[in-house]
Nucleic acid binder design. Structure first.
Length: 178
DNA sequence: CTTAGGATCGCCT
DNA sequence: GGCGATCCTAAGC
């Protein structure tokens, strides 16, 4: 597969479901092996092992001891590359997501990696699983989409890299693009 | 609308 | 032992 920034860009507009629940990907971030902000920057460890394995799998980690976050593993020279799925526009299983999240605001159902994880019931149990098999489902986007990019969010290193991607004009982004 | 603090725990130095 | 690829709530303008 190609580099993670290209994958991150091409994922915008793709429909992601987990057990039939989810929506259209509207925000992603790319991370790679040579990237100081990436979990893989310092080499393989127990946590990031999946990121050094085959492409097309889920890498899931626990953020701040509370939030399960979903990444797609990419293959790049040296491996250790992936894309963080940061936000969805909810389209399927909305009632289920509202119940899991405990709030009804559609704009905040899946707008952020932690919220998305909660809405889709992402847990460590899905770590390393193939994205082309149950419970995951990916459907190609229809037609063209306008993608914007900018600095990634919530990191302190490599903030100059424009490796955050979003669907232009979407109301479901975790934060606006400047 | 912006900012500040707390929650909470696995990972790595 | 310190610190996050975060989110929520409350308080301040």
């Amino acid at each position: 597969m190609r580099d993670s920034a290209e994958v991150a860009r091409r994922l915008i507009g793709v429909t992601l479901l987990v057990d039939g629940v989810g929506g259209v990907i509207v925000e992603t971030e790319a991370y790679d092996r040579e990237d100081p902000a990436s979990h893989t920057f310092s080499g393989p460890t127990a946590r990031n092992a999946v990121m050094f394995g085959p492409a097309g799998r889920a890498y899931i980690y626990l953020s701040y001891g509370i939030h399960w976050c979903l990444n797609f593993v990419c293959r790049e020279s040296g491996h250790g590359a992936g894309v963080l799925i940061r936000a969805l526009e909810p389209t399927a299983g909305i009632a289920t997501m509202i119940e899991r999240r405990g709030q009804t605001d559609l704009r905040r159902l899946c707008s952020g990696p932690g919220r998305l994880g909660q809405a889709l019931a992402i847990t460590h149990a899905l770590n390393g699983m193939r994205l082309d098999k149950r419970p995951f489902s990916l459907k190609p986007r229809r037609g063209r989409v306008r993608v914007i990019s900018g600095p990634r969010i919530g990191i302190s290193k490599a903030i100059d890299q424009p490796w955050r991607f979003g669907l232009a004009g979407s109301q479901f982004l975790s934060l606006p693009f400047r």
